[in-house]
Design a binder for these strands. Structure first.
Lengths: 161, 161
DNA sequence: ATACAACTTGGAGCCGACTCCAAGTCAAAC
DNA sequence: GTTTGACTTGGAGTCGGCTCCAAGTTGTAT
C-alpha cells in the first residue's frame, strides 16, 4: 500500500481548517513547510493531517498559536517525551486544561441553577449564584471525563463567511 | 447594614478584570452604565461585581463578548428564565460547553498518552493518537466534574504587561 | 496653594488570528 | 490554443478585544 497524499483542499476538508489558514500556519511556521509537487502545489500526508487536527483541537481549547509550539514539538515523530522540559510543559498544560474545565463547569452550574428555577425566587438564587462564581480552591477532584467531539468555538466561528 | 459600594479599582481587584477593561465593557454596553458619584466616579455594588465575574468566567470559556449578551440577560435580576428563548439559549450554551469539555478531554488524553510513554514506540502510539483526534460521536458520558478555579487563559494573558 | 492620587473622557494604537486579494503558474478539457 | 480550475505567492485588510494615552476634574494631605 502506497502512502496516500492529499491536496491542501482535502487537508482543509478533513481538518475543518481553511486552506488559507493552513497556508497561514505554514507561513508562521506552526506547520513545517509542506512538500511540493513539481508544479509547486502542497502535498499533505497522514501525519500532516494529524498535526493540523491537533492544532485545531488545541485551538478549540483556546490555546494561543504561539503556545502551541512546544506542544507540537512533543508531537513530532522525532524526539518525543525524552526531554524533561517537554514533559513539564505537558503537565502544566494538562493542569491549565483541567482548570479551564473547572471554569466551564462553573458556567454549567450557573446555567443549571437558572434552568432549575421555575422562577427566580430572588433571595435564594442570588445566594447560590454568588457562590458559584466564588473561588472554590478547597475542593479538589477533577476526575477524567469522556471524549466526544469539539465545537464550542465552531458554533460561533462557523457562522461568518 | 448599608449596602457596600466599590470603586472601579476595587471592582478590578475583586474580579481580576482591569479597570480599563471594565470601562471598555461599559463602553460597548456589555455592562450597564455604572452609577456615578457626584464627582463622576463610577460606583459598583455587589451585583455589579457579580456580573463582571460572570463575564470573566464566560470569557474563560472562550465565549466572544457579543455572544455573552443574551447570556447576561438571563442573569439580570429582572426577567429571568421566563422567556423560552432564553431558556433555549442557555441550553444550547450548556451543550456548547459540554462539547468544549470534550475537546479539552481529547487534549488531556493526548497528553496522558504522551506522558505514559517512557518511549514513543512509534507504531503503537501513532495509532492511538490518530484515534484520539478522531470523532468520538458514539461515546456519550460527560458526568459533572467538580468546581475549582479558572486560569487557563490567565496563564497566558497574565504574562503580558 | 500646591502637589498628589484616583478617577473621568474620547480616541488612537496594538496584537493575534485570520481572511482576502491580485498576479502568476500549471495541467487538463474542450 | 485558449479557457477553466486548482493551486501558488506576498502583502494588505479586517475584526475582536483590549490597552494606552492626553487632557481634564475632584478630593485629600502637607
Amino acid at each position: 500500500m502506497e502512502e496516500q497524499m492529499f491536496t491542501i483542499k482535502q487537508a482543509a476538508e478533513q481538518t475543518g481548517i481553511s486552506e488559507d489558514t493552513i497556508r497561514f500556519y505554514e507561513k508562521i511556521m506552526l506547520l513545517p513547510r509542506a512538500e511540493r509537487k513539481k508544479n509547486g502545489h502542497r502535498v499533505y500526508r497522514k501525519e500532516d493531517i494529524y498535526r493540523i487536527k491537533l492544532i485545531s483541537c488545541l485551538k478549540k481549547t483556546g490555546m494561543p498559536l504561539e503556545a502551541m509550539r512546544p506542544f507540537l514539538a512533543a508531537s513530532a515523530d522525532t524526539a518525543s517525551t525524552e526531554y524533561p522540559e517537554l514533559v513539564d510543559q505537558l503537565k502544566s498544560h494538562r493542569e491549565n486544561i483541567m482548570n479551564q474545565v473547572s471554569s466551564l463547569q462553573q458556567i454549567v452550574d450557573f446555567i443549571d441553577i437558572r434552568l432549575a428555577e421555575g422562577r427566580p425566587q430572588k433571595e435564594y438564587s442570588d445566594q447560590i449564584q454568588d457562590e458559584v462564581l466564588e473561588e472554590h480552591k478547597e475542593k479538589e477532584i477533577i476526575k477524567p471525563i469522556s471524549v466526544v467531539e469539539l465545537s464550542y468555538f465552531s458554533a460561533y466561528t462557523k457562522m461568518d463567511k
